[in-house]
Design a protein around this nucleic acid. Structure first.
Length: 760
DNA sequence: CATACACTGGTTTTT
DNA sequence: CCAGTGTATG
């Protein structure tokens, strides 16, 4: 094993340590992935069979990469090693041990959408009013409880507040629904394995005995269930190696418990600790920023990253006029850097997915290729979810979420009333699908609907049988054909795109190769494994770094990645850190860690950008710089004011009477004490029509529009559709709609408040 | 009984 | 901004 640069002494120590628990505190960019892969490769070299190793990573992508690197080191892939996320490994264990469970091995994995649907059903069944109690709040509480391994009984005993009492009512009903649907939610993929491992001695024996070595990456982001899973798996051999960095814990909101890493030495007595603080990734100014910022957190183990790369260009902090100018700046900068970096070297990181839009537009205008990670995920698109529902139903006829989705689309004359009747007519213990199959004999169900239901159910049940003999591709193609999905789509808006997505899905099914996903040579259906993969696939798993495109993603998705050039955008109070985090010290520190994660993604160049004004959720507003920007050491950063009167000149010129964000690119750039410029006066209150609820201050249109009367006949420029003439106007205030005849793209209706029109 | 449109409300991050 | 729900219409 001699490939790659030599390991430094600490890394070597982490690789070579044997016998007992090992905690590797690995700072950002300190080579922890190298350590993990080298350690596994070494174990295999020493004679540990790969199937006796479990490696848990934060994403399936990371697992795949790890496997490839190990193969490079050893010349052979670590066949048989269990590697993947906690969730996928949990699912694997559950399928193997299905006979210990109240599910059959063809269970469906419910995503958040399905789970929420189940919660709504549970609320109905337990008589909790969805108008009074938010299903999402209940879902979130249930998920939280499951993450702590608290069952319905335990929650019932601690139901102190009103919401908790509703949780105690809904939770058991929710569990019953999952059981009768033969489904597990994400939390079950952790909690149920734990239960098996802790309560069934033969299961524990099997796995704890088998895994001589258990390795866990990103340990700082594990929750209680994951901790218990690890503990159970390592209970026999105690060769548990966890790698993590308390400064990069960013999933507290999802139940991650920092105590797991902070208390490791107490939980696993005799643990050896190795600290990796040499950073091989970033230049010195970037690390200075990172160190200074994270040092403000109180809940952490003190440490400091030291660069092994030396000096570099200062970090650039940029203030722009609005989010559009922010994006224009980034696009311009990427262009300017073209001789040194390719678009594939660049990442734009933001706090919320909604921030991607201006960057997409600016990059498109600048003809720079980009890829978005996340946002509306492929498998969450409506048409994809619908087709997948058919497949789920074919594999698992008990799946009610899938049934309800599939039966409603394409339209077949079965509406909410028919479904409602079916729901109430079905017999105890009978699946919805079976009830549908005999719908004609049910008096309650309307005749037309009954016939449709029956036809639908019969085909599904037929496919359920057929499925065992044909390929997944054939099943999927048959569904699309038989249920008229193409026809339905061709009549829809965006039908072309949606159809293309469905074709892509069919392609993915066809290409799907389940090899190595499971060891069961038996009836582990190909389709079933495909669906499992779909359910557990994360955004970042689908990201292809070799694309030569700028990567746009949330800071959360960027964890574990690195880029030569990084933009951290939207550094404004209320956005990053998010407003709600300001009230709680814990959440505030988590936001700061998230910022730290963003900063430490950068190898060479780092830009920190923010805007003076930002359009948020339909209403605009002044934005203040993020307090995090004040924590950046002056001698590592160069502060710039961009946009001002330069680009978007027409915009700035169109501004009328709004001292708040008059361009002032002079002295203020240096000091960074810009508050809201001229003061607190909002751009325009009330608006031309005085629209808005009474007693409520309301910002109106974008400034430029104040110079437009928006009367029919007026010539305007739309950012996407180009020049056009206003034909008609309806509504008032923020709800003003315009009919515009565009010179090139025909007549369209647009919302004036969102169209960002400019005078022609 | 299904469908089309208006309205309301909520909105962070994700396996 | 969007989705999910409620109401008017066919």
């Amino acid at each position: 094993m001699s490939r790659g640069p030599a390991l430094n002494p600490e890394q070597r120590e982490a690789v070579d340590f044997r016998e007992g628990p090992l905690l590797v505190l690995a700072g950002a960019g300190s080579g922890k992935t190298r350590v993990l892969t080298a350690r596994i490769a070494r174990l295999i070299e020493e004679g540990v069979p790969p199937f006796r190793i479990m490696a848990v990573t934060f994403t399936n992508r990371a697992a795949g990469e790890m496997g490839r690197r190990i193969e490079e080191l050893l010349g052979a892939p670590p066949t048989g090693m269990w590697s993947g996320t906690f969730h996928s490994l949990g699912a694997r264990l559950l399928r193997r041990e299905a006979d210990h469970l109240d599910r059959d091995p063809h269970f469906t994995i419910y995503d958040e959408d399905d789970a929420l649907r189940a919660v709504k059903m549970a609320m109905e069944e337990s008589g909790v009013d969805p108008d009074r109690w938010s299903p999402r709040a209940l879902r979130s509480r249930i998920s939280r409880a499951k993450g702590q391994l608290l069952g319905p009984e335990a929650v019932g005993q601690e139901a102190f507040d009103l919401l908790a009492r509703r949780v105690a009512e809904v939770y058991p009903a929710y569990e019953a629904i999952l059981r009768r649907c033969n489904a597990f939610d994400f939390d079950d993929l952790l909690g149920r394995p734990v239960r098996l491992l802790e309560e069934e001695e033969d299961v524990r024996g099997l796995y704890a005995d088998r895994f001589l070595h258990v390795l866990v990456d990103e340990y700082q982001d594990t929750n209680h269930a994951q901790y218990r899973m690890v503990r159970a798996l390592a209970s026999e051999h105690s060769n548990l190696c966890v790698v993590g960095d308390d400064d990069q814990s960013i999933y507290g909101w999802r139940g991650a418990d920092l105590r797991n890493i902070l208390d490791f030495e107490r939980d696993f007595p005799g643990a050896h600790v190795v600290r990796l603080e040499r950073n091989y990734r970033s230049t010195e100014p970037i690390l200075r920023v990172a160190n200074a910022v994270i040092a403000r957190n109180t809940a952490r183990k003190p440490k400091e990253l030291r660069t092994e790369r030396g000096a570099g260009e200062p970090v650039t902090a940029v203030r722009t006029g609005d989010e559009r100018a922010e994006a224009e700046f980034a696009a311009g900068e990427i262009r300017r850097l073209e001789d040194r970096y390719t678009p594939g070297d660049v990442a734009v990181l933001y706090r919320t997915n909604a921030q991607s839009r201006p960057f997409e537009e600016a990059l498109r205008r600048a003809a720079i290729p980009y890829r978005i990670v996340g946002g509306v995920r492929f498998y969450e698109r409506r048409e994809i979810r619908d087709v997948v529902a058919y497949l789920q139903l074919v594999v698992n006829p008990a799946d009610e979420a899938a049934f309800l989705r599939a039966v409603g689309w394409p339209r077949r004359g079965v509406g909410s009333v028919t479904v409602e009747r079916l729901l109430s007519a079905r017999r105890e213990g009978e699946t919805l699908l079976d009830a549908a199959a005999r719908a004609s004999s049910l008096d309650e169900v309307p005749t037309a609907g009954a016939r449709a239901l029956q036809g639908f159910a019969e085909v599904i049940l037929e496919l359920n049988v057929l499925q065992r003999e044909v390929t997944a591709r054939q099943v999927a193609a048959t569904c699309v054909e038989t249920f008229g999905i193409r026809e339905a789509l061709s009549g829809e808006e965006d039908g072309e795109d949606r159809l293309a997505n469905v074709e892509e899905l069919l392609g993915a099914v066809a290409e799907f190769d389940p090899t190595g996903l499971d060891e069961r040579p038996d009836e582990a259906g190909e389709l079933e494994l495909f669906l499992e993969r779909v359910a557990l696939l994360s955004d970042i798993d689908r990201w292809d770094p070799e694309q030569g495109s700028v990567s746009l993603m949330t800071l959360h998705n960027a964890k574990g990645l690195e880029f030569p050039v990084v933009f951290v955008a939207g550094l404004e109070r209320g956005l990053f850190p998010l407003a709600r985090a300001e009230a709680s010290a814990d959440e505030y520190e988590e936001e700061r860690r998230l910022f730290y994660v963003g900063v430490t993604r950068a190898r060479d160049l780092l830009y920190l950008t923010h805007a003076d004004r930002r359009w948020r959720a339909g209403s605009g507003g002044q934005a203040e710089p993020s307090p995090f920007l004040d924590e950046v050491p002056e001698d590592a950063v160069e502060r710039r004011r961009v946009g001002g009167s330069r680009r978007g000149g027409s915009r700035a010129a169109g501004v009328r009477g709004s001292p708040g964000w008059r361009t002032r690119d002079d002295a203020s750039a240096a000091s960074f004490t810009w508050r809201a410029g001229g003061g607190s006066e909002p751009a325009a209150i009330g608006g031309p029509s005085g629209g808005g609820r009474p007693g409520e201050l309301r910002y109106d249109f974008d400034d430029t529009q104040e110079t437009l009367r928006l009367d029919p006949g007026e010539r305007v420029v739309h950012p996407a559709f180009g020049e056009g003439t206003i034909q008609d106007r309806s509504g008032s205030g923020r709800r003003t709609k315009l009919t515009i005849e565009f010179d090139e793209s025909g007549t369209r209706k647009v919302m004036a408040a969102f169209a960002d029109l400019r005078p022609a």
